[in-house]
Design a binder for these strands. Structure first.
Length: 436
RNA sequence: GCGGCCAUAGCUCAGUUGGUUAGAGCACUUGAUUGUGAUUCAAGGGGUCGCGGGUUCGAGUCCCGUUGGCCGCCCCA
């Protein structure tokens, strides 16, 4: 047993695991780039206050935080949103709108480990700043869906639940409730799926009682699963904000429909997301089987840049975590096997042949081919076996017989055919063989 | 922070009511094989049985603690 282990909840990435992570990152990056998002990165370590500012003590308890040698209170980043707000806020006036940025980064939370959750994990974060209308949500939800579809996932595998905190506020506000009561009720809505009626306990403790008519209205609102039902429920409420908001909904759903994404989207007012900084549309992606925790989540946060000291700047963002996502891909058999196949394996007879082979090996590698050869003298049979195990498409045979004629033998590992080419023409011969 | 289950080789696991020097398969290395790759055969390396304490003539095995892992609760940005 090794003396040292990685810290609890942290992951080592051995080559095959890193290959899988790189695969996920590569398709995420490809997708984000296709959607016109620009990649950024920032420090892993941030001032603790950056996270204290926007969240409460519960959040702070799950931070990897400490005092550095200069006496600064610092924390490993638990999420990207405050950081990206800091970056955008600092240069907001110089950045061309809309600002579309993404990052793929590692985060740290001091939490108990669970399936799909560790103390370190990676996320794709995408954010769009400067667009107050639902056009921003269309862009981000479209990208979210494609970030999952890029791996072969379909509407059979996942769906996106779409909801709106604004409409909740307008609806409950029109009934005369103040902000405090509305926020408490939203907390209950968030928990209702899990706890049923017990979800309202907090509200009752806080405000003494819960009017049964109000409760009925909340319950029927959170069960709304379509735009039509939403419009029907709100038809009786005469309120300009609600009318405008329903227009936003139509624009958002219309845009997503035009992108062909309707089959991935489910309107579901039961989703409100716990986090306080969301201010409008919110959305979460889940696996259809309901076996895993949320795959992705996001929403609008129009006040956060300003709260963190920047200008007023509307924003929408989402994040996908790598752990649950990788579990989903594995469950659906969509995680490819990664074999680091080489293009060419050089079979080398002895010391003089080795010297001759090295020139070609260097030239082929410089030309971009993956070339391997045995570091030590090994019997021919072993070398062919090694070539085969390395997945080589070609074997270059530097043997005494060939070199005596000024030739190299090229063996096609798949069909076992062989031909000889002059030493000086090895690179072009390899190129021809690999292209053909 | 709370609860359940678990811990023997790199991996998957055997290991009898507590009894001599702790095993298998896979993987790895080497050889059979000094010019031709998926087989086969042989040999080898690798374990203070997670760690610490206790019971016992004797502990991988029983007891306590601890650390780590898996799963769930709280939480989930």
């Amino acid at each position: 047993m090794a003396t040292f282990q990685s810290l609890p909840g942290f992951r080592d990435f051995y080559p095959d695991e890193l290959a899988r992570r790189n695969y996920i990152f590569r398709l995420w990056r490809q997708t984000a780039t296709a959607f016109g998002f620009a990649e950024y990165d920032a420090p892993v370590l941030e001032p603790l206050d950056l996270y204290k500012a926007k969240s409460g003590d519960e959040i702070e308890a799950q931070l990897f935080s400490f005092t550095d040698k200069g006496g600064r209170e610092v924390a490993l980043r638990p999420e990207m949103t405050p950081t990206v707000c800091r970056l955008v806020g600092a240069k907001a006036n110089a950045l061309k709108r809309p600002i579309k940025w993404f990052s793929i980064a590692e985060f740290y939370r001091y939490e108990r480990m669970q399936k799909g959750r560790g103390r370190s994990f990676c996320q794709l974060n995408a954010d769009l700043f400067g667009e107050p209308g639902p056009e921003a949500e269309i862009e981000l939800i479209g990208m979210l869906v494609q970030s999952l579809c890029a791996f072969g996932l379909t509407e059979q595998d996942f769906y996106v639940r779409l909801s709106d905190r604004n409409l909740w506020f307008y609806y409950l506000g029109a009934m005369g409730l103040d902000e405090l009561r509305i926020k408490s009720l939203l907390g209950a809505v968030d928990r209702f799926e899990k706890y049923g009626d017990d979800a309202f306990k907090g509200y009752i403790e806080q405000f003494g009682s819960l009017d049964s008519d109000l409760k009925q209205k909340v319950l029927s609102f959170l069960q709304i699963k379509s735009l039509a039902a939403l419009e029907a429920t709100l038809a009786s409420v005469d309120n300009d904000k609600i009318t405008e908001r329903l227009a936003d909904w139509r624009k958002l759903l219309g845009g997503l429909a035009a992108m062909g994404l309707t089959r991935y989207i489910e309107v579901d007012l039961g989703v409100v997301r716990g986090l306080a900084y969301y201010t409008g549309f919110v959305f979460e992606a889940f696996d259809r089987k309901g076996e895993l925790r949320a795959i992705a989540g996001g929403g609008r946060y129009d006040d956060l840049v300003e709260k963190l000291g920047g200008p007023t700047l509307p924003a929408v963002g989402f994040a996908i975590g790598d752990m649950t996502f990788a579990l989903l891909l594995e469950q659906r058999g969509l995680m490819p096997a990664f074999v680091q196949a080489v293009d060419v394996y050089c079979v080398i007879g002895g010391a003089p042949e080795r010297a001759a082979a090295f020139g070609a090996i260097q030239a082929l590698r410089a030309a971009g081919y993956r070339v391997e050869y045995p570091l030590r003298e090994v019997a021919f049979g072993k070398q062919f076996k090694a070539a085969s195990e390395a997945g080589a498409r070609l074997a270059l045979i530097y043997g005494g017989d060939e070199l005596a004629k000024g030739m190299v033998k090229i063996r096609d590992m798949a069909d076992r055919s062989e031909r000889e080419v002059p030493l000086a023409e090895v690179v072009t011969a390899v190129r021809d063989s690999l292209q053909g």
